[in-house]
Amino acid sequence: LTDDSNDDYQYEEVSTDDECSLEEGDEDLSQALQTVQKQAEDAHVLASPSCLTSEKSVSEIPEAMDDFFCNFLVRLGMSRTLDCFQTEWYELIQRGALKAEDTGLVPTVYTRNQQLQDENMRLRKDLENYKLAANQAKEAFLKMQKERDFHRMHHRRVVQEKNKLISDIKRLKTHYESYEPVLKQLTEKYEAILRQKTLTSLERDRAVGQV
């Protein structure tokens, strides 16, 4: 076939809309279902705890090397050593005398050891405070115990004195009761003598009157 024959022949365009209209409708529906299912799966994956972004606490973030030493010196109260360290550290950095690994981050194990040491020191301070409070409570308890013993002894002494006084009162009462018959007898004798004296005085006055 020559090029002229190809140019003279009129080709008709075949329309595929009629043939694929049903297939396109099915494809659109299935594609929409797949999209919805995929979005649901993505939402489920994003909502799962394994895919959530976990924020590290401040204590888990590695410290810089100079911050680690500065915090160490501050905790020990070595202010002059801290000033010397900072001055010399930044001088070495400006001169480029320090390597990258020297100015990097402190390994996690050192940071963890430092945290454990800080926790240990805090617990030791708490223990000392508890011991001090316990000793103060013990001293207060011993003082109260001594005061209790003193008041108990004083109470016992007062009770003994009271019992002694009660015994003396009973003894005196018994002694008084033993004297009561004698007093009654003496009273009767006194009254008899007084009557006899009165009669004697009357008889004497009568005799004097007759004379």
Rank of each mutant, 00 (worst) to 15 (best):
H155Y: 12
C20Q: 07
V109R: 00
R112P: 01
M144P: 00
C84S: 14
K173F: 01
S167L: 10
K184G: 08
F68P: 00
D8H: 13
Q31H: 08
L1V: 13
L22Q: 12
S57H: 11
Y190V: 14
A137D: 05
E55D: 02
R195S: 01
D28I: 15
Q34C: 15
V45K: 03
F68R: 00
W89H: 04
C70L: 12
L52C: 02
V109N: 04
R204D: 08
D118E: 15
L202I: 11
D28F: 06
E188D: 12
L105T: 02
L202G: 01
K131V: 13
L127D: 03
V182N: 02
K131G: 01
T87A: 14
T81H: 06
K197V: 03
L172W: 10
E27D: 14
E139H: 01
T200R: 08
S167F: 05
S79L: 12
H44T: 08
D67L: 13
K99G: 15
H151T: 05
F150N: 05
M121Q: 15
L105I: 04
Y90S: 11
S57C: 09
M121K: 12
E139K: 05
V14W: 04
F69H: 02
R206P: 00
V36L: 14
K189W: 01
Y176E: 11
A40K: 12
V211A: 11
R124V: 01
V211W: 15
R148H: 06
C51R: 13
A192M: 06
A133S: 12
V58C: 08
K56C: 09
P49I: 00
R206E: 08
K38Q: 10
F68H: 06
T81E: 08
Y11F: 10
M78T: 03
T35F: 06
D4Q: 12
A207E: 07
P107M: 02
E139G: 02
L127W: 11
S57T: 12
T174N: 14
V208G: 03
F85E: 02
L76F: 04
E60P: 00
D168K: 07
D18R: 15
K131H: 13
L46F: 08
V159P: 00
D66P: 00
L73H: 00
A97K: 10
D205S: 07
L46H: 03
S79W: 02
Y176K: 13
G104A: 07
F72L: 06
L46P: 00
I93V: 13
T53C: 05
D126V: 06
G25F: 02
D18F: 13
Y176V: 10
C70A: 10
E27C: 04
R124H: 06
K125F: 06
F150W: 07
Y110L: 09
E55T: 10
M153H: 09
L105S: 11
R95L: 05
V106W: 01
V36T: 11
T35K: 14
L202V: 14
K170R: 10
D126K: 03
R157H: 04
Q34P: 01
C51Y: 03
V74R: 08
Q196I: 02
T2P: 03
T16C: 12
A32E: 15
D102I: 01
R95K: 15
T103K: 00
Y110V: 15
S50W: 05
T108E: 13
A40W: 08
